[in-house]
Design a protein around this nucleic acid. Structure first.
Lengths: 196, 196
DNA sequence: CCTACCGATCGGTAGG
DNA sequence: CCTACCGATCGGTAGG
């Protein structure tokens, strides 16, 4: 069916674009570069997508949705704050590992979104970060985490570590995503935990 | 003297460019944008600089030099591996804090360097990272750090945290750079240290 | 998915 | 530091 073929071709365009945006950055990637990657003329791209930015929007908001879904699944559980933080971190890593290319674009290129998309994106992001911050605060209240930690510093350090992973993680030579998430979580959470 | 005036004006151009590159990214920043920021015509920029990329080269390599100098001062000291790592982290933070704008450009825009500059830059960076990795390895040998830690993961987590700082650190509302460096170091190093 | 094309903008130069 | 300008390239459209 035509709609199925169109969808599939559109996804090919978006995936090729993600690779290009990751390598060269959004602004330095031209629609002619993208067309060449796909073996078609630049003008033909517009049969599949409305604009260059529409591709970036798809990539950024699809990733945001995956992150949100992962976090909501963790928040539903009846577990301690430190265990929730641990599972939240592992979930975040697993979502990224499913598409490292899109994750890198999500992280580095979202600023090229135009309004109102940029504003919406930043609101989703601050909400996501704040929910991790709440886990840290909860852990301090229950006595699981040191009461002396700087919450802003802790959460920014956490997301710095998480978000850079797509730039250095090599799934063919490094450990698998779940183990990486567990190790990263241990390293960061043990830095927060009271020493016994 | 004319050469002094020229130098000073050239630095103004570079500083304005750094702000622009930080806000919009290198590729999305035009020389006309930069000229407007300085109140001159785009063509006039070329009295002060040879090309757009020369500005990026200055920013990236000047920062790299500062980082190297800071690290060398720390490496000279006769101290334990964990103390050296701690001072290395504080030094890195202090270098960034001296110019947060250039630091952000250094981190996010270096990939737009052309060859051979890009290759030289990446060699400097891998050398710098490896010297921090050596401190972690030394600390494992002396028993200061857990022997179970993944060295690559540890050093990448460290640099992720360090390098994102220019994107969220607000010198007017947050703690001062030395204290931030100390806190960040404590948080990361305690995550590496053996629990007592 | 193609040919043919558009107006806008790019980094940079010549000459003063 | 300016005016005047260049060739190249940009995202995108018309019409098939």
């Amino acid at each position: 069916m035509e709609s199925v073929a169109n969808l599939s071709r559109k996804e090919q365009v978006i995936r090729s674009a993600a690779q290009l945006f990751r390598e060269k950055g959004y602004a330095a990637s031209s629609m002619r570069d993208l067309a060449q990657k796909l073996g078609i003329e630049a003008a033909s791209l517009y049969s599949h997508i409305k604009s260059k930015e529409e591709i970036l929007q798809s990539l950024c908001f699809d990733m945001a949705t995956e992150f949100r879904k992962s976090l909501e699944a963790v928040e539903k559980k009846k577990i301690t704050a430190s265990e929730m933080l641990r599972l939240g971190i592992i979930g975040h890593i697993q979502v990224m590992a499913k598409d490292l290319t899109a994750s890198a674009v999500f992280m580095n290129e979202h600023r090229h979104l135009s309004q109102p998309y940029l504003r919406d994106f930043l609101l989703l992001r601050i909400n996501y970060i704040n929910r991790f911050k709440s886990m840290i605060e909860a852990g301090i209240l229950t006595g699981e985490f040191k009461e002396t930690i700087d919450k802003k510093l802790a959460v920014m350090t956490l997301f710095s570590s998480l978000n850079w992973m797509p730039l250095w993680y090599d799934p063919t030579s490094d450990i698998d995503p779940a183990a990486l998430g567990a190790q990263l979580s241990d390293m960061l959470v043990n830095g927060l935990k009271k020493s016994k």
